[in-house]
Amino acid sequence: MRLSVPNIPPAILASAALRNDPIVSPSEAVQRISSFLSSGRTAVLTGAGVSVDSGVKAYRGKDGRYMHPDYKPIFYQELIEDSLRGHSFRQRYWLRAYIGFLPVRRTFPNSTHYALAALQHVGVVGPLITQNVDGLHRAALRRVLTEPEIDRRILELHGSIFKVHCQHGHVYPRAVFQDWLGQANPRWREFLAELERTGTQPKTNPDGDVVLDDSVSYDDFVVPKCPSCDAEGRRNSIIKPDFVFFGESISQEVKDRSYRTVEVADRLFVLGTTLATYSAFRLLKHALELRKPVLLLNVGPTRADGLPGVDKLEIPTGVVMTDVVHTIVGTRAHNDPALRDILLSDVVKEVVEQAV
């Protein structure tokens, strides 16, 4: 079976190159989004575009094309292959991911994450489905909700980078596994410590690993075995991040929950995604089949361009979403302490960063 990175169909990209879509002003966009969100129960679907302002790399550029044509990610079948070849793939993945996890731990929510958290807090929007594995929607909602409440409000369609699991279902925090990797590979632990001391960072790829020099050998990198499997008398070093790899399917449970989220809502608000991944695109299609209004906010072509029933605004989410919240909630933005705290969070972070 031939596997490839999901992309927008070439016909849509070609059509987009010929179109001159009207540019909407921020003020008009704010009014249209506010009107849409105020008209009924809204489900939200987000993609990589909402995290770009946090420094997280997107898969595709403003032209809708994959930005890393020469980069060959490791596919699910390669990572879990129980063979010497599979072990080599895991060595390559975990060495690069070990280095790449450093900037992930330093990433913070941006104004779009906080705006959506604020809208969830006041009940304007309901459940949020995200394709992102960066945990930033969760981090924003932690300002006002407990973890069990967040679990009910957010569905991470493709999983989370902050957990790992073995093939027998044992789950560990990613930070714990990071420490195991360092203990098993003291030379690379020193390399990572040097990166932290100097503040340097190799180029990071979309799936969280980094570009290392061609001279780097992965042969001596040790991938820790699962300690729970060890205690049960099994030797198992097939451990993967708790997110969906290219070539891997989402679970039936997650798929069913994502469909239910769309079905119980009155409308669907889609932000920062080209919808190149079918697991997300089919949710938009499902909303259209149920005759629910859909508003799509994205810069550049998407897989849904030209579909009847999709109202699209070409504008970055960070330009408008905070103003959308203020337009909808009015004076409550100042009178509600929790709401005020959410809306000021990104501003406070920027001030701290500038001071540093």
Rank of each mutant, 00 (worst) to 15 (best):
R65P: 00
Y66H: 09
H68E: 12
P69M: 08
D70S: 08
Y71R: 09
Y71G: 04
P73V: 07
I74Y: 00
F75S: 00
F75L: 02
Y76T: 13
E78Y: 12
E81D: 15
D82C: 06
L84M: 05
L84T: 11
G86I: 10
S88H: 15
F89T: 09
F89C: 14
R90A: 03
R90C: 10
R92S: 09
R92N: 12
Y93K: 13
W94A: 02
W94V: 02
L95F: 00
R96L: 00
R96N: 07
I99P: 09
G100T: 06
F101N: 14
P103N: 04
P103S: 01
R106P: 08
R106L: 08
R106E: 00
T107Q: 09
F108G: 01
F108D: 06
T112L: 01
T112R: 13
Y114V: 02
A115H: 12
L116W: 03
A117S: 15
A118D: 02
L119R: 08
L119Y: 11
H121L: 13
G123F: 05
G123M: 13
V124F: 05
G126V: 08
P127Q: 15
V133D: 01
D134K: 15
D134N: 14
G135Q: 04
L136Y: 09
A139Y: 13
A139Q: 15
A140C: 03
L141D: 08
L141W: 14
R142F: 09
R142Y: 01
R143P: 04
R143A: 09
V144Y: 06
L145I: 08
L145D: 03
L145K: 13
E147Q: 15
E147D: 14
E149A: 15
D151S: 06
D151R: 14
I154K: 13
I154N: 11
L155N: 05
E156L: 10
L157H: 02
S160E: 13
S160D: 15
I161W: 12
K163G: 03
K163D: 08
V164T: 05
V164G: 00
H165D: 00
C166D: 03
C166G: 06
Q167F: 02
H168N: 10
G169F: 11
H170P: 02
V171I: 09
V171R: 05
